[in-house]
Design a protein around this nucleic acid. Sequence first.
DNA 1: GCAATACGTTAGCGAGCACTAACGTATTTG
DNA 2: CAAATACGTTAGTGCTCGCTAACGTATTGC
Lengths: 101, 101
Amino acid sequence: MIDPLSAAAEPSRRRILQLLAARSMTVTEIAAEFTVTRSAISQHLLVLAEAGLVEAEKVGRQRIYRVLPGGLQRLQAEIDRFWTRELDQLVDDAHTIRRDS
Amino acid sequence: MIDPLSAAAEPSRRRILQLLAARSMTVTEIAAEFTVTRSAISQHLLVLAEAGLVEAEKVGRQRIYRVLPGGLQRLQAEIDRFWTRELDQLVDDAHTIRRDS
DNA sequence: GCAATACGTTAGCGAGCACTAACGTATTTG
DNA sequence: CAAATACGTTAGTGCTCGCTAACGTATTGC
């Protein structure tokens, strides 16, 4: 399985996840939000699916994609693992400095 | 300036940020933690610097790298912007499901 | 049954990425 | 001053990425 963070970092896939988080959509609906080809969207969806972030349900001749909450949970866990207390402390310091200026 | 999230997503650069968050280090010290060449580390540091995440201070013949709190702050903001309430809600649902099982 | 629709798949391309090897440049050490 | 150290830089390589164009396959509507 692909690294969720690497999969979600790509700008187009970020937007796809945003769209699908709001509501489940078909491939054509998603592609309508982009300037790139539907084929490109299909491939992005494949990557997101391999990362366990989305899933497709076949309904008639269209496939409805939705996010997988468990995948987002793993993504969040990965971000949390990266965002250690040291990093937190540094960001807090930055806030303090900004407050002082 | 480079997108902080894209810069920080790469696994090697993730580790570099972790190391530098703990303490400022020289290039050789950082490279010692990796199997790749020092040259590769230099180039990763360049990317991180262009993303505004790290900074170098020249001390004698060595350069001491440290993280820039402001850069981490922007990175955190970018993650927060991605992590909308819709995504949060879905993750909460996943937690609930997990609690039920 | 036949055209249209919705989608996956594949080949191929250009660009960028991560990396190594080699070299160049300050700076320190002896 | 010469060797060693610490680092940047650059050319070149293999690989991956994002993308398009083209084609194949179900499914629906007429």
